[in-house]
Nucleic acid binder design. Sequence first.
DNA 1: CTGAAAGCGCTTACAG
DNA 2: CTGAAAGCGCTTACAG
Lengths: 342, 342
Amino acid sequence: MSTRPRASLKDIAAELGVSVATVSNAISGKGRVSEELGERIRATALARGYVPSLTGRALRTGRSGVLGLVLADIANPLFPKIAQAVEAAAATSGYGVLIADSRGDVTEQTQAIRRLMERGADGLIVVPRRGTRVGEIGLPVAVIDTPSTPGNTVSADHWGGGRQVIGHLAGLGHRHFVLIGGSAASNVQNDRISGMRSALPAGARHTLLWAEGPGRAPGAPLGLAALAAGGATAFASVSDLIALRALTELQSAGLAVPEDVSVTGFDDMVWAGVVTPGLTTLHQDMPTIARHAVDELLRMIEHPETASAVPPGGVPMRLVVRQSAAAPRAARTCPTEGAKPT
Amino acid sequence: MSTRPRASLKDIAAELGVSVATVSNAISGKGRVSEELGERIRATALARGYVPSLTGRALRTGRSGVLGLVLADIANPLFPKIAQAVEAAAATSGYGVLIADSRGDVTEQTQAIRRLMERGADGLIVVPRRGTRVGEIGLPVAVIDTPSTPGNTVSADHWGGGRQVIGHLAGLGHRHFVLIGGSAASNVQNDRISGMRSALPAGARHTLLWAEGPGRAPGAPLGLAALAAGGATAFASVSDLIALRALTELQSAGLAVPEDVSVTGFDDMVWAGVVTPGLTTLHQDMPTIARHAVDELLRMIEHPETASAVPPGGVPMRLVVRQSAAAPRAARTCPTEGAKPT
DNA sequence: CTGAAAGCGCTTACAG
DNA sequence: CTGAAAGCGCTTACAG
C-alpha cells in the first residue's frame, strides 16, 4: 500500500517479459495482439493501477487532449454553467479543459490565448467579450456568442428568446412595454432586444432603455417607477441581473409585482428562482450548447476535412414561467388594450 | 506569413549550427553560454516566434506545470471569482489551471480528481462539497474551505465575518436578531453562524433558522414577516442568495427595508450591489486566498521539505456597507435597547 | 564555453 | 502475432 510511482508501459512490459509495443497495442486495442496475451496484459495493467501518461501520448501524437476555455467577460454570471457544461462534454470525449480568463481586458485576452497555446491546447472555446471578434489564431476555435455574430459556432437562440417573452407578456394582456438592455455593445443583448421588438403586438407601445447607456451613472436608478406611472405594465429585461435590479427598484418604490407591473429576465440564473416573486425568465440549454461546441471543435481537430454538423440558427431557449409576470390589472378587469396601472 | 509549424529547439539549433543543448541553455539561462552566442540564440528564437513546448518539458521534468481546480458544489455562485483568482495566481507563477466539476456528486468527485491526475496535474486545489473531507490522493492538495475544517489550507475568516456583521447591526442599535443559515451541513455556514452568535450583545434576543432545514420544502417561504411582527429587526443571512430571498420576501410582505427591518448577506456577489436597497454584506478577498492556495501548492510541489508559509486563521473579510441595514425605528427615536418595530 | 548522449512515456510504421 | 527502433521536444549530467 506504499505510494510507488505510477507504472509505465515499460514497467508492465518488463513484468510480463514482453515489449512495450505489444503492451501499448493490447491496451489501446489497435495493433493485433493474441487474445490470450492481450488479456494477460490488461489484467496486470489493471492490477498495477496503470494510468496512461497523457503527456507521453501528447508528445508522440502532437495532440494534448486538452481544450482551452477562454472567458472574456469579467465575472460573467453564466460562467459556472458554461464551464460545467463544457467540462462535462469534454470529459465525455476524453478531453480536459484548461481555463483562461482575461478579466474583460483585450490585451489580456491575447495573453490568455497565448498561454493556452503554449500549453498545447488542441482547440479553443471562446465566449467573447461583448462585441469583440476573435481573430485568426492558427488553432481550431469554437465561438459561443449569438447566431448573428460572424464566426459564431453555436449559441442559444437569443432572438427567439426575445420573441418568446414578449409573446408571453402580450398573451397575458400587456400592451405597454419597457425593454431594458444592459450594454448596447453586446451582440447577445442586441439580438434579444431585436427579438423582443419583432414580437410586439400591433398597436403596442414600448420604450427602450439601456441600463449602462451613456450619461447614466453605473448603478443609478433606472427610473422605472416613473415609466410605470406613465402606463407601462411590462418590464422585459435582457438579463436576470437587470431584471433583479428592476424588480427591487419597483418594489422599493411601492409597486407590487406582478399585481401592478410584470418583470421578466433572461438566463434563469440561481437567484431567479429564489426571489419573491420568482422571476419569469428564459433558460439556456447549456449542456446542448456545450456539447455542440465541443463536438464541433473535435471535428475540426480530428477530421478537419469534414463539414460542420452543428445545426444553424441557435439552440432554442425555454420560457420558465414564475410569478413575476401576470396579467395587467386592466386586462384582468376588462380584456382590452391600452391599460393604466394603479 | 504562411502558418508554418511551431519552431522547436532543434530548428533553432539547426538554423544557427549549434547544439540543442546550447539553445536550451541560452533560452532558459541555466547552463553557462557565452554572452555573444546567447544573444544570437535568443534573437533568432524571438524572430522565429519560438514557443517552448510545455509538453516536452513536462515529459522530461516529470512536472506538467498544471494545477487542477476541483469544484465540488454544483453551480457554486462563488465559482467565477474563485476560478478567476486561481487562474490569475497560477498564471503569474507559470502554471495552467485545469478544471473539473463534480456537480455535487461524491462519486463524480473521485472521477474528477482521477481525470486531473491522468492529465498529470502537479497539484490540486479543492473547494470541497459541504462537509466533505478530502481523502489522501497521492498528490499535493490545497483545500479552500474554512479555518475550522481539518485539512483546510487557506480560506476566508468566516467566523470573524460573522462577528463583524452582528457587531455592525448591534452598533446600529439592533437587539432582536434572526440568523438565517442555508444548510446545517456546511462548515463554512456553521462558522459564520458561530461567529454571529459570539458577537450577539448581552441581552439580545435571537432566532436561528436553516433555510434548507429538515421539514422545510425547498424554496418555501421562510416566514420572516411573522418574525418581524414578533419584534425581530435584523435578519443576518449566511449568504447573499439567502439575503436576497429574505429581502424580497420581506419587501413582498409589505415591509420596508431598511426602514422596518435590516437585512445582511455574505460574499458580496454581483447582485448584492444591484438590488434596491443594496445589500450590506461581507466581501471575500479571493485574490489573496487564491494567491495563498497557489503558493502553498507550489511550495509542496517544488520544495516539499519546507514548512507552510500560509498565515493561519483565515483571510479577514471586509464589511461592505450598503443600504439594506440601518438603525431600527426604535433606536432612531429612543436610543435604548429592546425595541419593537412598526 | 559548447556538444553528444540519454531518457522522460508513448505510438507508429516496419521487420521478423 | 510480436518486437526492435525511431522519434515527438525537452533537460540534465557529463565529456571535451
